[in-house]
């Protein structure tokens, strides 16, 4: 039987990070494969957040996809399989036509080869057109810093009020024990990933559920910096490149909290 998908990643770790960053939001997702690469679009069960992965063909050492195919996988199972891989192992992802499994094979420098056939699911495809957004505020900051802010502030309240204006990017939270905020000012640094940059077309304040932001920020290992984009009454964009821009990106969208 002909191989429909035959892809090889130089480093299994990248795929592992991708799976890890999705698993708290979605249980089962479709990996839509085409000659351009792999794509995932999935919403969480309450339809508040959207995950959109674009894994470009350029990210792979080899990538062959004869015809478009959707591979429905359980994300939890996928992360379990990828746990078998070492940080510098290579990973092969293969799928034969008319079978209901996808094969993962990882090979370490020590000549050890592990292989796993994961059963595929039929998952309803809810492909969504994401309308082009015109963000009023676009900020780029170190991903580890974003993760720390989200985790720290989650201790105090459920809702984050995010403000972007000429002073900088302000994260405000209030809860039972009091209220607090973190202000990030744009800064230039030697290392590009430690830079904070901010573009404000007009000042914006919007509210978001911190619980989701903490989940999004688990994608930090993917890339040193993260891009946030927001506008009044519009979804928040949280974007991580897959190491570098040309390999693709992981985008999270989150509906704003209203009536508060």
């Amino acid at each position: 039987m002909a191989m429909v998908l035959d892809a090889q990643l130089q480093q299994a770790a990248l795929f592992k990070k991708v799976a890890e960053s999705m698993k708290d939001l979605c249980k089962e997702v479709n990996f839509d494969c085409s000659e351009k690469g792999m794509q995932v679009q999935s919403m969480d069960s309450s339809h508040v957040a959207l995950v959109s992965l674009n894994f470009r063909e350029a990210a792979f050492a080899e990538f062959k996809c004869d015809r478009p195919v959707s591979l429905g996988m359980n994300v939890d199972s996928l992360t379990k399989i990828l746990k078998m891989t070492g940080p510098s192992d290579t990973l092969k992802i293969r799928h034969k036509g008319d079978t209901d499994v996808v094969n993962f094979q990882c090979e370490g420098s020590d000549d050890r080869i592990s292989e796993f056939d994961l059963k595929l699911f039929q998952i309803e495809n809810e492909h969504m057109e994401i309308p082009e957004q015109h963000y009023k505020v676009v900020a780029k900051l170190p991903s580890s810093e974003f993760q720390k802010i989200c985790r720290d502030l989650k201790e105090f309240g459920e809702t984050l009020h995010l403000t972007g204006d000429k002073d900088g990017l302000k994260f405000v939270v209030s809860g039972d024990i009091g209220s607090g905020n973190v202000l990030l000012k744009p800064r230039e640094t030697e290392k590009p990933e430690e830079k904070v940059s901010l573009t404000v077309h007009e000042p914006v304040t919007a509210a978001f559920a911190l619980r989701y932001l903490v989940n999004f920020s688990k994608a930090s290992p993917l890339c040193g910096s993260v891009t946030l984009g927001f506008a009044p009454d519009a979804p928040l964009l949280v974007q991580y490149d897959l190491e570098t821009e040309d390999k693709g990106h992981m985008k999270f969208y989150l509906a704003p909290k209203i009536d508060e």
Partner: peptide, 8 residues
């Protein structure tokens, strides 16, 4: 909500 899910 970000997007209405399909009808049941």
């Amino acid at each position: 909500m970000l997007m209405m899910p399909p009808k049941l």
